[in-house]
């Protein structure tokens, strides 16, 4: 199998003075070349932290305690900061949720694009031409005029397009998008989703999408993992996951969303996610799970194959229910 990224037993803890928060606890997954891979979960589940640890951008006191991240067979966790910087500005690109805070308000758009072109040692003229080409690639009208403008002159959707253009300037092979459409209106979100899909095809990239929105996962991703409290609880191909959700948490998530058709009563998941600073011996979802048994609290259930190519971390069998 041809994997662009392999993550094994990754543990990223925030080692504070008072307590240790296990933000990512023993997470393994891989991203195949050319696929769109989704990481979905609610706030605090560790989905953003996973991606920040892939490129070693965790905020202090975050530390990769254990595990390995291999990009094209090359181990990333042991790289120095300088080597890592070359990876981030090169083969792995990132786009963030809020383009307003990710872009520099006092630099012209063109200068921000030039920054990410700098490693390619182009002449001024070539850089300008490439900048215009990139803005055109992300469907920004009148790119020559827009090159001279500042972030505040762009709308939310246009800012996200600029963000994407800047990231693409370095010709990334793997694009990590952290909630790329969350701050946008639905009609604009729809446009950005199609744009990322089109660019992925045109440029032959692999994409990791981090989101809390199951609809976005469905429309963008080939395969998906569901995270809860720092663990992966389920992994499957996207359609398989929605047609046969196997983990009680995934089932609960789907049931707590209003459906397009009909008005069945929403069934929220009771309670709230656990405190990650406390030791949780068993299944992290046990406290909120209707099917919890004493066995659930004894040991962390491992991910196991419950249907072909479909992994779930739950001790119970016969879990398939219609949702």
């Amino acid at each position: 199998m041809d994997n662009i990224l392999e993550v094994e037993h990754l543990k990223m803890y925030y080692c504070g003075k008072v307590e240790t928060v296990r933000a990512v606890d023993d997470v393994s997954f891989h991203v195949e070349r050319g696929e769109t891979f989704g990481i979905v979960g609610e706030s605090g589940c560790g989905k953003s932290t996973v991606c920040k640890s892939l490129v070693k951008m965790m905020p202090p006191p975050g530390r990769i305690v254990d595990g390995s991240v291999r990009y094209n067979g090359r181990e990333l966790t042991t790289l120095s900061e300088g080597q890592m910087r070359a990876v981030r500005g090169g083969e792995i690109g990132m786009i963030f949720q809020d383009p307003m805070t990710a872009l520099n308000p006092v630099m012209k758009i063109k200068d921000q694009i030039y920054e990410s072109l700098r490693r390619q040692k182009l002449s001024k003229k070539e850089m300008y031409a490439r900048g215009v080409e990139l803005l055109r690639l992300v469907d920004i009208p009148e790119p020559e005029k827009r090159m001279e403008e500042y972030v505040h002159q762009f709308s939310g959707g246009m800012r996200q397009r600029v963000m994407i253009a800047i990231t693409l300037a370095a010709n990334p092979k793997l694009l990590i998008a952290d909630e790329p459409t969350t701050a946008l209106d639905v009609t604009i979100q729809d446009q950005i989703i199609r744009l990322i899909g089109r660019l992925k095809e045109e440029l032959g990239m692999s994409v990791i999408i981090i989101t809390h929105d199951l609809g976005v996962v469905n429309e963008m991703c080939d395969r998906v993992v569901v995270m809860y409290a720092g663990h992966i609880v389920e992994q499957a191909e996207t359609r398989e996951l929605f047609d046969h959700p196997m983990h009680p948490y995934t089932q609960g998530l789907i049931r707590s969303l209003p459906r397009a058709e009909g008005r069945e009563k929403l069934e929220p998941i009771p309670g709230a996610p656990p405190n990650l600073a406390a030791e949780i011996p068993g299944c992290p979802f046990a406290d909120r799970c209707a099917r919890c048994t004493p066995a659930c609290r004894e040991a962390l259930p491992p991910l196991r194959e419950v249907r072909p190519g479909h992994l779930s971390a739950c001790v119970h069998d016969d879990l398939e229910v219609s949702v």
Binding site: V186, T187, E219
Partner: peptide, 13 residues
């Protein structure tokens, strides 16, 4: 425009 969880929504290009 709203992203949905249906199989058809995946086909939208």
């Amino acid at each position: 425009a709203a992203p949905r969880m249906t199989a058809e929504a995946r086909q939208k290009k």
